[in-house]
Amino acid sequence: MATHRSRRLRKKLCVDEFQELGFELSFQYKEGQGDEAIAAFMKRFAANAVEPNDLVYSGCDEYGFICLARRGSVSAQQRELIDEWLRQQQELAGFNLGPLMDAWYPEQSVNPPVQ
């Protein structure tokens, strides 16, 4: 069923040219990391990687979702900055960054960038 929506409604629904992208993230910690060390890591992650890049992390200490702190989409460059920061962290045995995906409607495909 084709749907014709006004520009205003598309913006409110965050669809079509107003699609907002983010990505999923999961952490695997090295053996022996206690709750205090993980909590300290998460605070450092927020203060040094997420907030300075105008992003927001929603989730727990094992997995979550990162999106832009305002309306709009996470860029591939911002995703790379998070990837680079995480690669330098000694507490992690590994981590997984998902691809950029629709933050509001995860089942929708990502629209090509508007020129």
Rank of each mutant, 00 (worst) to 15 (best):
65 F>P: 00
73 S>V: 04
28 Q>H: 13
79 R>F: 10
11 K>G: 03
15 V>S: 06
105 Y>S: 01
107 E>K: 05
94 G>K: 07
74 V>K: 01
114 V>R: 10
63 Y>R: 13
54 D>V: 12
105 Y>A: 01
16 D>Y: 10
3 T>N: 13
65 F>E: 05
31 E>I: 10
102 D>H: 03
9 L>Y: 08
110 V>Y: 06
3 T>W: 14
26 S>Q: 05
78 Q>K: 07
75 S>D: 11
43 K>T: 12
15 V>K: 01
42 M>W: 04
18 F>E: 04
60 C>M: 07
89 Q>I: 04
64 G>L: 02
56 V>N: 04
12 K>M: 13
33 Q>W: 04
53 N>R: 01
91 E>R: 07
91 E>V: 12
74 V>Y: 03
16 D>P: 01
53 N>P: 02
106 P>D: 08
78 Q>C: 13
48 N>V: 07
41 F>N: 01
77 Q>G: 09
88 Q>W: 08
37 A>R: 06
89 Q>S: 06
96 N>H: 14
38 I>M: 09
101 M>D: 05
35 D>K: 08
46 A>C: 10
28 Q>T: 15
26 S>K: 07
52 P>E: 07
77 Q>W: 12
3 T>S: 13
49 A>M: 05
36 E>W: 04
103 A>Q: 00
45 F>E: 01
32 G>P: 04
90 Q>F: 11
54 D>T: 09
28 Q>E: 14
31 E>Q: 11
111 N>H: 13
6 S>V: 04
92 L>F: 11
76 A>H: 05
42 M>H: 05
53 N>C: 10
53 N>W: 08
2 A>K: 14
9 L>G: 01
109 S>I: 11
58 S>V: 09
38 I>A: 03
107 E>S: 11
98 G>A: 02
3 T>D: 14
76 A>S: 12
83 D>V: 08
7 R>D: 15
71 R>D: 12
109 S>A: 15
38 I>S: 08
71 R>P: 04
68 L>W: 07
85 W>K: 03
98 G>Y: 03
42 M>Y: 06
6 S>P: 10
20 E>A: 00
53 N>S: 06
90 Q>E: 15
109 S>M: 11
112 P>R: 06
62 E>I: 11
53 N>G: 02
16 D>E: 15
16 D>L: 06
18 F>H: 02
84 E>R: 12
35 D>G: 09
16 D>W: 06
80 E>S: 14
90 Q>S: 13
62 E>W: 11
13 L>N: 07
18 F>Q: 01
39 A>S: 11
21 L>S: 02
97 L>I: 05
105 Y>R: 00
56 V>L: 06
79 R>M: 14
113 P>E: 09
109 S>D: 13
5 R>T: 10
3 T>R: 10
5 R>W: 15
36 E>L: 12
84 E>W: 05
9 L>D: 12
31 E>D: 11
71 R>Y: 12
62 E>L: 10
62 E>P: 02
61 D>C: 13
46 A>I: 09
52 P>D: 06
13 L>Y: 02
53 N>H: 06
41 F>K: 00
83 D>Y: 13
92 L>V: 04
47 A>D: 15
93 A>E: 15
66 I>V: 15
9 L>H: 07
77 Q>L: 13
26 S>T: 05
96 N>W: 13
